[in-house]
Each structure stands twice: as C-alpha cells, then as structure tokens.
Design a protein around this nucleic acid. Structure first.
Length: 150
DNA sequence: GCATTTGTGGCTT
DNA sequence: AAGCCACAAATGC
C-alpha cells in the first residue's frame, strides 16, 4: 500500500497527514520536511472546513485498530464544536475507565479528525499525543477556555 | 485546603 | 500476558 504524506497549514500550525488516495491512515501534528503540498483531498477539505468553523463530513478514515476505538470515536464525534468533555465523562459514556480512555486516546492514530483534543481532565487540560501546544491552540480556536491554565 | 496516595479498568504492544 | 495511561476520587496532613 502506498501512501503519501501531505502537509496542511492551519491557523493553529502545520500538520501532516498520510493519504493513500482512499483513506486517511494517519495524521501528524508536526511539520514534516518530506510532506507534499496539500491538495484537494477529502482530508484537506475537511480540515479546511474545520478551520473555517463549518460542519463537514469526515473523510474516509482507516478504521480504528481496536473495536473500542470505534466506540470512542463515535463518542468523540458526538461532542459538539466548542464543547469539551472530561475523561471521566467519556469513560462513563463508554462504560470504561478514565485511564483507559487516556490510553486509547493517546494511541489514537487520527487525532484532530477524531476530536480527541476536546477531552480535558476533570481539573486540568490533560495531555495530547502530538504536542500539548496543539491542544491548547485548538481549544483556543474553538473558543474553549481551559480552566487549568493560569 | 493542598499534597499525596490509592483504586480503577481496560487498552496497547 | 505484562506493562502502560493524556484520570479521578478519597484520604492524610
């Protein structure tokens, strides 16, 4: 399977994603030197819409590696724009445990497309797999005030 | 109140 | 099968 790394410049920074022509298999939130210029992929379209605060259907994503991530994905996608949930809430929704959620989210190969950045700790911002700075920027972009910051 | 510890539950490799 | 986790709630002080 051949895939290419594309680059997308967003208001929150530069990110790169792997697009094999059919599905998005992964996304990285740091610039990659070998990244190609972004093109009219569904992923780019989605990102464009997202950063324009417009609703848009997700591009074809490579299926999660585990069934639970599927549920998690659904739960995450259910979070409206600009809203956040806590790990505990999400855990309750998935009938799971907060730490497990963190683990699963951290291993999520598709951050941002699956809004894992909207998950905050009960009294903090929590963490982010691809750099906490991104999370803060994204939340700020969505107009979410993080309580923990001070 | 604040700091630390413990419990939890399951995901990832 | 063992380690790992981006939490949370409960104690101890």
């Amino acid at each position: 399977m051949r895939y290419e790394i594309f680059r997308y410049v967003s208001p929150c920074g530069t990110l790169t994603y792997a697009w094999n022509g059919e599905t998005c298999s992964g996304i990285r939130l740091h610039d990659k030197a070998t990244a190609l210029a972004g093109d009219n992929n569904p992923v780019t379209a989605w990102l464009d819409a997202y950063f324009d605060k417009k609703p848009h259907a997700l591009p074809p994503l490579s299926m999660p590696h585990t069934p639970f991530q599927s549920r998690m994905r659904a739960a995450l996608l259910a979070i409206p724009f600009g809203k956040t949930r806590t790990y505990g809430e999400l855990a309750a929704a998935l009938n799971s445990a907060p730490r497990a959620i963190g683990q699963a989210l951290g291993a999520n190969p598709l951050p941002l497309l699956i809004p894992c950045h909207r998950i905050l700790a009960a009294n903090g911002i929590g963490g982010f797999s691809c750099g906490l700075g991104w999370k803060r920027r994204l939340l700020a972009f969505e107009g979410v005030a993080v309580a923990t910051e001070k």
